[in-house]
Design a protein around this nucleic acid. Structure first.
Length: 739
DNA sequence: ATCAGTACGTTTTTT
DNA sequence: ACGTACTGAT
């Protein structure tokens, strides 16, 4: 028991021991956040709290699983009674039990993004609207946003859009379906309106914890409030500097104003970083310092030595990608690293193509996280649509898909006819039986319908008899699905069949974890995300967006595409000028993923939409380091040979040399703080370029001066190529002269 | 109903 | 550049 607390630093320990009342843990990147949450759970259990009464909310299944297994390792079987889950999984489970309160059936299906779009498309079409004026995807985004924020007027621009929204909800209801956002809404609705239910859950969850609190939106914070009993034992953990989901309704003020919303809140700040070296943290601090919407916080580490952050100016996106892959190969060889120690991060998925190509070219194994998602692939969606109609015989969206797999001669016309039956309140099985009875249409379609109806009855029967994986095998066989895939496709047959196998494997895996029904499996498949795919056991280079990288760490991180308009993303900026800070937080998240090496790069030209665009270096690279006109360490124009990755510290030195050659006064101190400030401390007056001597490290050059006063830090580039960062006041550096 | 050929818009991020 | 979504022919 004591050992548990001994492994924590003082701030962490305080946070763990503060079990009663509202608690806010501000946990900087890499500060041992997960450790604090899991230790807190164990601490509660050791104090005699029943695991049954503990609820922990996370954003990804991966985080939930990780926490659960960490706790399990220490407390053993007791961990089974814990509720550690994502918001969405929690709500799905809740609704399966409680949705009868809303007079709905517990066999509802959960629609993912593309199901929503399909459904919206049909709605818009049936309203006889010009689809060009009301693109289903845009509407989907708007609807989701207003569901998450409650900001109805802010997003829906006119009466017609309101009507679409209403018709969409009606359609979902008719299909006994709900989208991701409804999971939260309906849960809140039940808790709000049925005091008995609320009381039951409040009594049960005596201790509530929320991870990644900076990314909660309005509805999530509402849910927490509804679940929170009078004990107010709520502990939220997060970091406003890592809030990157504003675009989907996350409300950073939830964390910034937590202490005013919950009077009596105790706040604990975790600033010691256990992940990265000091030069990386210095850089990260300098980046995030530019933001206004935050409370002061500064990460530090006792790993003071480390390699400098490196930056590279490239001629084109293709060369950028090639150099990254080559650098990875070189580093791996020289430093005995695994491919899985590397990650390449980018702002948007479209940037990954060049990387993929170069990985193939150099035979570097890679793993692309995101992009087209497993559960979004045709073959997987096909199969899932069958599962869904078996579980929920009102799911018209899935029915419309399944009936064309493989084609059965039932096209749009015949489907319309069937839909009129459906509209009169029948479920799918009844619709088909009636249509057959009435001979609603003839010829090929009729034969197809008879066959499909028989298959459907079989599928329903099998679902009661067999476990999901066996059921799946029978379905694939009955459809002759593999054969269908082969006829369908001239490319990608193999990968499609592979995916099918993977689905089966995943299903068997889930069965081992205790899943028994198709319905449970579908909830799982709807609610997993891409991060859940990251597989550290496979030695592959990880390629992903910065968003997908949140919460992960890698020995060496490359952040590419650092051009203005790309990162920060221009569309985001156009949408909402305030989002520059969110873009910067995104950059901050990117750089804080790195443990030991951080490489940044940008390309002067890049192909998008098949067109070549010229870009300039990202303002994120300019701001924190030196003045905006700074040239990169190496001039470009000569692809491939544009040399090595220059270090930021090198650049400062070179820049200064250049300026002094011109007779200009070189002074880069305080630039990181926005410049202009005088060093008021008076104890040390170092600036970039000064030659200094340190008692144990020897002679070196000052490469960066940051901050002022007692918190001022100085980076020194020593002769033996090591970089160390010192607290200026304490370092005892002897100035030997200017450069 | 299905296929082949073509026109078009897409790409910011995702539970 | 690429996938989709539409058009007209079978």
């Amino acid at each position: 028991m004591d050992q548990l607390l001994d492994e924590l630093n003082p701030q962490q320990r305080d946070a763990v021991e503060a079990t009663d009342g509202p608690v806010l843990v501000v946990a900087g990147a890499g500060s041992g956040k997960t450790k604090v949450i899991t230790s807190r759970i164990m601490h509660l259990i050791q104090k005699g709290v029943s695991p049954y009464q503990i609820l922990a909310m996370t954003f990804t299944n991966k985080a939930a699983q990780e926490m659960k297994s960490r706790v399990e390792r220490v407390v053993g079987r007791d961990a089974r009674d814990l509720t550690i889950s994502t918001f969405h999984s929690f709500c799905a489970l809740f609704l399966r039990r409680e949705i009868a309160h809303l007079d709905r059936d517990s066999s509802f299906v959960i629609y993912d993004t593309s199901d929503q779009t399909t459904c919206l498309k049909r709605v818009i079409r049936s309203m006889d609207l010009e689809e060009k004026h009301y693109p289903a995807q845009k509407m989907r985004g708007k609807i989701s946003y207003i569901k998450n924020t409650g900001d109805m007027e802010g997003r829906l621009s006119n009466e017609i859009e309101h009507n679409i929204y209403r018709a969409y909800q009606e359609e979902l209801l008719a299909q006994n379906a709900m989208d991701f956002d409804d999971l939260l809404h309906l849960t809140c609705q039940i808790l709000e309106n049925f005091g008995e239910v609320q009381e039951r859950y409040r009594r049960r969850f005596e201790f509530i914890m929320v991870d990644e609190y900076q990314d909660t939106n309005q509805i999530q914070s509402k849910l927490i409030n509804l679940l929170l009993g009078e004990h107010r034992n709520l502990c939220v953990v997060g970091d406003e500097d890592q809030s990157i989901y504003g675009w989907r309704g996350a409300d950073i003020t939830n964390i910034l104003h937590f202490d005013t919303h919950y009077p009596g809140t105790r706040v604990f700040k975790l600033e010691q970083n256990y992940r990265s070296t000091q030069p990386i943290l210095d850089y990260a601090n300098a980046v995030i310092n530019q933001n206004k919407l935050r409370k002061p916080k500064k990460l530090w580490t006792d790993q003071e030595t480390g390699l400098p952050v490196r930056i590279r100016d490239e001629y084109s996106g293709g060369i950028e990608a090639e150099n990254i892959i080559q650098e990875i190969m070189g580093l791996r060889r020289r430093h005995d690293l695994e491919f899985s120690d590397f990650a390449v991060l980018f702002r948007s998925n479209a940037l990954s193509r060049m990387l993929e190509e170069n990985c193939r070219k150099y035979r570097v194994p890679f793993q692309l996280i995101g992009g087209l998602k497993f559960y979004d692939r045709k073959e997987i969606k096909d199969i899932l649509s069958f599962m869904r109609i078996v579980v929920n015989p009102r799911d018209w969206t899935s029915f419309a898909r399944a009936i064309g797999v493989p084609p059965r001669g039932i096209g749009a016309k015949s489907q319309d006819k069937l839909y009129t039956y459906f509209n009169s309140g029948l479920d799918i099985g009844e619709v088909m039986a009636r249509a057959i009875e009435d001979k609603a249409f003839g010829g090929r379609g009729y034969k197809g319908l008879v066959a499909f109806e028989a298959l459907y009855r079989n599928l329903v029967a099998w679902s009661k008899e067999y476990k999901p994986s066996v059921w799946l095998g029978k379905l694939v066989k009955a459809l002759d699905y593999k054969d269908y895939l082969e006829r369908l496709d001239d490319v990608g047959i193999e990968s499609r069949i592979d995916n099918l196998e993977e689905l089966l494997t995943s299903m068997e895996e889930q069965e081992k974890q205790g899943i028994e029904t198709l319905s449970q499996f579908m909830d799982f498949s709807a609610l997993v995300n891409d991060q859940d795919d990251v597989d550290p056991d496979q030695p592959r280079v990880n390629l992903m967006t910065v968003h997908a990288a949140k919460g992960l760490e890698f020995d060496t991180v490359f952040v590419m595409g650092l051009e203005d308009g790309v990162f920060p993303n221009q569309r985001t900026l156009d949408d909402n000028p305030n989002s520059l800070e969110e873009e910067r937080r995104l950059f901050y998240v990117a750089v804080t993923r790195a443990k030991r090496r951080l490489y940044l790069s940008y390309a002067r030209s890049r192909q998008t939409y098949g067109k070549v665009n010229r870009n300039i270096k990202s303002r994120f690279l300019k701001q924190p380091i030196v003045n905006p006109d700074q040239e990169p360490a190496r001039s470009t124009g000569r692809p491939r040979t544009s040399g090595r990755w220059g270090s930021l510290d090198d650049q400062v030195g070179k820049m200064e040399a250049k300026l002094s050659a011109l007779g200009a006064k070189a002074d880069f101190s305080n630039v990181v703080n926005g410049g202009g400030g005088q060093d008021s401390s008076g104890t040390v007056s170092l600036q970039s370029g000064d030659i200094v001597e340190h008692a144990s490290f020897g002679v070196g050059t000052v490469s960066l001066v940051m901050g002022r006063g007692s918190s001022q830090r100085v980076s020194v580039h020593f002769r033996d190529k090591r970089i160390r960062t010192f607290i200026a006041e304490k370092a005892n550096l002897k100035k030997l002269g200017d450069s």
